[in-house]
Design a protein around this nucleic acid. Sequence first.
DNA 1: GGTCCAAATTGATACACTATTGATCTACAT
DNA 2: ATGTAGATCAATAGTGTATCAATTTGGACC
Lengths: 233, 233
Amino acid sequence: MPQNGSLPLYQQISELLIRDIAAGRLTDGARLAPERDMAAGMGIAVGTLRKALADLTTKGLLERVQGSGNYIRAKTEVDSVYALFRLELPGGGGLPTAEVLSVARLAKPADLPPFGTSAEAHRIRRLRRLSGAAAAVEEIWLDGSYIDRIAAEDLSESLYLFYRERLGLWIQRAEDQVGLGAVPGWAPDAFAPPSGTAAPLIERLSWAQDGTTAEFSRTWFDPKTARYVARIR
Amino acid sequence: MPQNGSLPLYQQISELLIRDIAAGRLTDGARLAPERDMAAGMGIAVGTLRKALADLTTKGLLERVQGSGNYIRAKTEVDSVYALFRLELPGGGGLPTAEVLSVARLAKPADLPPFGTSAEAHRIRRLRRLSGAAAAVEEIWLDGSYIDRIAAEDLSESLYLFYRERLGLWIQRAEDQVGLGAVPGWAPDAFAPPSGTAAPLIERLSWAQDGTTAEFSRTWFDPKTARYVARIR
DNA sequence: GGTCCAAATTGATACACTATTGATCTACAT
DNA sequence: ATGTAGATCAATAGTGTATCAATTTGGACC
């Protein structure tokens, strides 16, 4: 007693082409054979093929050029430079800004997890605000192999944008561990929780596009001003 | 084909199909056989089958397309029932287990965010362990519309599996907010941080497949035993 | 370089037929 | 009242076939 029926033809064709794209058999920019020929080759009507191609177009995987042909458009997703930012106001949202407190190139302290290839790293300390409210203090360690010197003026609002544009470094994935820590002694007065008090602590290890670990950071946030938010789907 | 039972036929059919979806025999996007054929195969009338399919549609598990067919619409999360579990040992990993502390059906307290349609909810309290170590205590509020009564014996190790198999409820996405809270008074002695002390607090709102908010939960974890882990890519 | 034109190709439309769900009705059982 | 069976017809989707409009492109020519 089978519950399964078969998908409509046009959906089967659409899925078949999507699979070809995913498998790399059809790459970005490639031109498909003329519709008349494709349909004949598949043993279906042009109208049916066109319905499948329209589906692909809707999905952003195909560009159809009248008089010219059908072209694959399979770009990797564009990501916002704030895609990796995870702090929000307790009610949600909040415009993130960053104020650099200090920048230094130092020998890597022993208490950091292993990352990068250099024995030295750049330590960047910042105060993070959400819609103007001091929400967190963070200490970022970027492996020394990417650049010799960083000056505070070099840094853009978004560190990851700076990495990308100036260092050719693309942070592609990260792992956060949220626990509890103590507010560090160098935290500025603008950060409400006093030095030494318990504060949620985010420890992040970040990986570059070539698979190497590039950066380690610690972020202490004020639980009255911010929440670490994760959306799971 | 369906056994004689106390439930109406159309509900038995509905549950049978839900079980097929839960077991992965019917996957998202799949098309069911034509109603005429399905009904004949089950030995029931098309009208009865249609009533069952209407139930599935209401639950967000089916899309019925006039002239085309019936399509499964159940995006299952990753196969693992632990896909939504976010606590790990400080060194990473850890086998999660759960011990039910209490179950009760209560009027929704005023301090919960809005969720579900009922004025009542089931409150489930559990102790979570990671590889045997008491890592967290959690209080889950499931909207009362899904089931009248829950007994502690009803609950499986994974609450989400219970939801899926027994209630036809798919938790499809969730939002976690991690901040700081105080260990609740009902926490058992096995949980190391004493009642009232500061502990990281995860507040989670969960959505079902039909778009409704179904569940709210609070989880206090021991920062010496566990970390909230988010992997971003 | 520009212009023109034929060929190639997709865009749009129409018609016909089949398959399938949507809607409605009657009848019977509990 | 609800549940179940059975039937009929309306409406929609899918598929095939065909035709013509509109756009692009390459090549010839100046």
